[in-house]
């Protein structure tokens, strides 16, 4: 270690800055940024007779134009939006409700509840996928048995095995797993609301539920925005749960196929279809575009507006 490198004001190179930055920038650039752009570039190539040739937008023309490919792509994209909508409609309200209950300072055992409700979030998708597959299985009969106990046995169906219900069931399983994250973030946001504001509300007779709707909810809107964009990014590159529960074919009959599983199948191949890195790159580019649009909408559309409400 050179002991002489005192920060100098002369315009000479301050090597220590370079030394501090280099490892992180090198690894990040080499393993994340370059492959990202390389993948976008590979989408413009194809393999003809064992050689890589530039084909321009041909892969995208196949992806959107070819009946077979475009049907799969739109199926995966629409499924992915449905997956995201369920998260927004179920996960976030439950998370907010739990956080609102937990944030009451008089509540006892609140740290126990918090830790217990967060447990599913730390489990791997493999565990979650298989555990729910077993529980919902008609062979084992835990789910029908429990429905029977409350007299609702007629409601039971092999939800994961039916085309109409499989995707929604998987989305709800994912909600079950990740509800802890919105709960924690909203809980933190609720705790940061100054007591004076709530007390001022009480003086004006705003208490209980109306205090939640009129005072707390508007103040935690920025956190809800952050949770929404985190959910969006996570959902549009989800793969593991579907793969663990339904396999790479995203059965039954592709009804649970989302962009992640579609990318995996195309890139790696399955059964009789060979893997195709170039079509895989085209799909990855499409995913990149979807995520980028979502993030930009959030940054320029939602986030700026929320800040204005806060003032």
């Amino acid at each position: 270690m050179p002991g002489t490198a005192v920060s100098s004001h002369a315009p000479k190179i301050r090597w220590h800055i370079i030394v501090f930055l280099a490892p992180a920038v090198l690894v990040y650039t080499a393993v994340m940024i370059l492959p990202l752009f390389d993948t976008l570039r590979l989408a413009l190539y194809d393999e003809v007779e064992g050689e890589r040739v530039f084909v321009g937008l041909e892969n995208f023309r196949t992806l959107f134009g070819d009946a077979n490919w475009s049907r799969q792509f739109w199926n995966a994209l629409i499924n992915n939006f449905w997956f995201f909508l369920i998260h927004m409609a179920v996960q976030n309200p439950i998370g907010i409700a739990l956080a609102a209950i937990l944030s009451n300072p008089r509540l006892r055992f609140s740290s126990f509840y918090r830790s217990a409700i967060f447990i599913p979030t730390i489990l791997s998708f493999v565990i979650v996928g298989f555990a729910w597959k077993l529980i919902l299985s008609p062979i084992w009969g835990i789910a029908p048995g429990m429905l029977d106990a409350i007299g609702l046995k007629s409601l039971f169906a092999p939800w994961l095995g039916r085309e109409e219900t499989a995707l929604t069931t998987l989305a709800l399983i994912s909600v079950w797993q990740f509800v802890g994250i919105p709960m924690m973030l909203i809980y933190a946001a609720l705790l940061s609301i100054p007591d004076e504001i709530l007390e001022a509300g009480e003086c004006d007779g705003v208490t209980g539920l109306s205090a939640f709707w009129k005072i707390k909810l508007p103040l935690i809107l920025p956190s809800i925005g952050i949770i929404s964009i985190l959910t969006f990014v996570a959902n549009f590159n989800a793969f593991d749960l579907i793969y663990a529960a339904q396999g790479a074919l995203a059965g039954p009959d592709f009804s649970t196929d989302i962009l992640g599983t579609f990318l995996y199948r195309t890139f790696f191949g399955f059964q009789l279809q060979l893997g195709d890195p170039h079509m895989g790159s085209a799909i990855a580019s499409a995913m990149f575009a979807v995520i980028l649009i979502g993030v930009c909408l959030y940054l320029f559309g939602i986030q700026t507006r929320i800040r204005r409400y806060q003032l």
Binding site: A24, V25, Y28, V31, M32, I33, L34, P35, L36, D38, T39, L42, I229, V233, N237, F239, G260, L263, F267, P277, G280, S281, A284, S285, M287, F288, I291, L292, V295
Partner: peptide, 20 residues
Amino acid sequence: YLALGIMIPIRIGTVAILQM
């Protein structure tokens, strides 16, 4: 530049990562 990766999932670059 370093913050870009917070929002963009690294999985998008999988094809090129595997090649590398």
